[in-house]
Amino acid sequence: MLYQIISFVLEVATSLFGGACLLRLYMQHQRVPFGNPVGRFVFALTDGLVLHLRRVVPSTGRWDMASLVGAYLLKLTQFGLLWLLAGGLAAVGWVPLLAVFGLVQMAISGLTGLLIVYAILSWTQAGSPLSAVIDRLCAPFLAPFRRILPLVGGIDLSPLVLLVVLQVAAMVLASLQQSMLR
Results as ranks from 00 to 15, higher is better:
167 Q>C: 07
150 P>T: 12
163 L>H: 08
136 R>W: 00
170 A>P: 00
130 L>S: 13
157 L>P: 06
154 G>E: 10
149 L>E: 06
160 L>R: 12
167 Q>E: 13
152 V>H: 14
130 L>H: 12
157 L>G: 05
149 L>H: 09
138 C>R: 05
164 V>T: 06
136 R>Q: 14
158 S>E: 03
167 Q>P: 04
164 V>Y: 03
165 V>I: 13
138 C>K: 01
157 L>Q: 13
165 V>G: 00
164 V>I: 15
141 F>L: 12
131 S>T: 15
168 V>Y: 03
138 C>T: 07
144 P>N: 09
155 I>M: 15
169 A>C: 05
144 P>K: 04
139 A>R: 13
167 Q>V: 11
163 L>F: 07
150 P>E: 11
160 L>D: 13
147 R>N: 13
156 D>S: 14
144 P>G: 08
155 I>D: 01
166 L>G: 01
161 V>C: 08
152 V>E: 05
163 L>G: 09
149 L>P: 02
130 L>I: 15
141 F>P: 01
167 Q>A: 06
147 R>Q: 15
159 P>S: 05
152 V>L: 15
161 V>N: 12
155 I>C: 04
169 A>I: 01
133 V>P: 00
161 V>A: 12
164 V>Q: 06
132 A>L: 07
164 V>C: 00
136 R>S: 11
152 V>N: 08
164 V>A: 04
132 A>Q: 07
146 R>Y: 04
153 G>F: 09
136 R>G: 01
136 R>T: 03
141 F>Q: 02
153 G>Q: 05
162 L>S: 06
153 G>D: 05
158 S>W: 01
150 P>I: 11
159 P>E: 09
156 D>W: 10
139 A>K: 13
153 G>C: 10
159 P>L: 11
154 G>C: 14
164 V>G: 03
165 V>E: 04
159 P>M: 09
137 L>W: 08
162 L>E: 03
149 L>D: 03
161 V>E: 09
143 A>G: 01
131 S>Y: 12
157 L>E: 09
160 L>N: 13
152 V>D: 01
149 L>F: 07
134 I>E: 02
168 V>E: 03
163 L>C: 10
165 V>M: 07
143 A>T: 03
160 L>V: 14
